[in-house]
Design a protein around this nucleic acid. Sequence first.
DNA 1: TTAATACGCAACTATATGGTTGCTAAATTA
DNA 2: TAATTTAGCAACCATATAGTTGCGTATTAA
Lengths: 106, 106
Amino acid sequence: MQDNINKLFKAIADPTRREIFHALVLATSALSITQISNQFDMSRQGVTKHIKILNDAGLVQMQEEGRNRFCYADPKPLKEVNKWMQFYSQFWDDSLDKLGGYLDSK
Amino acid sequence: MQDNINKLFKAIADPTRREIFHALVLATSALSITQISNQFDMSRQGVTKHIKILNDAGLVQMQEEGRNRFCYADPKPLKEVNKWMQFYSQFWDDSLDKLGGYLDSK
DNA sequence: TTAATACGCAACTATATGGTTGCTAAATTA
DNA sequence: TAATTTAGCAACCATATAGTTGCGTATTAA
């Protein structure tokens, strides 16, 4: 649904969330909530909230194991953002002539 | 500066803002604030706020002309978002094996 | 069995966000 | 000159967001 793309954009809009996501992408293994909060100078609960938002956006997956919840990044949903942007890429070089168009028609 | 990318992500995080931006990209001429608010069922002030944020992000440029302020889209800053995403594109297909990595090392 | 660890849930705080209305000022039209 | 149009600014409101602390619970280790 169209709602997913909103969650995606929201998820990556926050710099802390982008950092967490980045750390998870670079990590060689899945990381627990506590492990993440240790390297982020933030309370465990703060991390939990961010992880929940990233998870809702599909950017982070989780696997419970005993008392641990191991998180790992899943960059696939970013394909959607990429698709959104591709439309505008055709205007990257030839933009800024809209005003001219207006002025000409005056 | 690193602050610009934050403004960019913030700007495109809001669905209304993406719609306004899209309308400006498709427009054949620059549009005044009033013209935009007419096709968006939102108060002029609401549009003004969104335009300000888009302008701060560099996605919308403006040209004052008398009592009018003509707005036009500038998609160039999106290149930055594209650059951010390109790093993760290499993981789009071969992700989801982090947990396995963890389990193996147990 | 007791102690420690990892975590979720709830409550709370401060600030940001998306939106509105009302007023004022400048530019244009009649 | 008087009326209309375009827009900025300020105040306001409701809700969302980013973060915290405290507490209870399940799992693991001693």
